[in-house]
Simulated assay, not measured.
Amino acid sequence: MKQFLVKVIASGVLGFAVLGISMAQGVTKTVKTDAIKIEGAYTRATAPGQQVAGGFMKIDNKGNTTDQLLSASSPAAGEVQLHEMTMDGNVMKMRQVKDIAVPAGGSVELKPGGYHLMFLNLKGPFAAGQTVPVKLKFAKAGELEVKLPVNEVGAQHSH
């Protein structure tokens, strides 16, 4: 009986340690590979029943060649598309793009009113304080997993 209790307590402690590590990783604000670095990633809280949300971040390319963000996916949405918003006269238009170029030695910002990720068919509301896992696929850097903190509606960047 004593050994059983020791195993149960040890399992619980280990479980909390793993949970703590997972939660700490969830709020990482910078993710990088040798060439690509993601900073300031975030999304915003959604209203109940809302089926779409935007994802924002800065992508730095420290490499010597241009890379392209080809796609994104998330278990929190049925689909994640790459989008761009532009002004056509006095009308703001949003359209899907096939990729987003990240210049060699430069960066691109995914932000409101410009390039962004568009989460479609949300599997549930995005609640402030949570994180949304996203897998980004680059032409050269490959796949990179990022956890976007969910900010209050109206927040402009990651806290």
Rank of each mutant, 00 (worst) to 15 (best):
V8P: 03
F56V: 06
L122I: 01
G63N: 07
L5K: 13
L144W: 02
G105R: 12
V18Y: 02
E79S: 13
G40C: 04
L70Y: 04
L110I: 01
F138A: 10
G78D: 03
A17I: 15
V102N: 04
A76R: 11
F126L: 05
H159M: 13
P103Q: 01
G12K: 05
G124W: 00
A141I: 15
M94G: 15
I9A: 15
G55E: 01
H157Q: 14
T86W: 00
A77F: 05
I38R: 07
Q81D: 12
A47Y: 04
E84L: 13
T131V: 14
Y115N: 04
A76V: 00
V6C: 00
T86D: 00
M92L: 13
V27I: 04
A72Q: 03
F119V: 10
M85P: 07
L144Q: 13
V52R: 12
L70I: 13
D88E: 15
P112K: 15
G26H: 03
L5W: 15
L117Q: 06
F138N: 09
G49Q: 03
K62G: 10
P75V: 14
M94I: 09
N64I: 12
M57F: 12
G142Q: 06
K62M: 11
L69N: 05
K137S: 14
A24E: 02
T30M: 03
T65D: 08
V102D: 01
K32C: 09
G105E: 07
A53D: 07
P133R: 12
D99S: 14
G105P: 03
L19I: 12
A141G: 07
I36S: 10
G26E: 03
T65G: 01
T33S: 15
M87W: 09
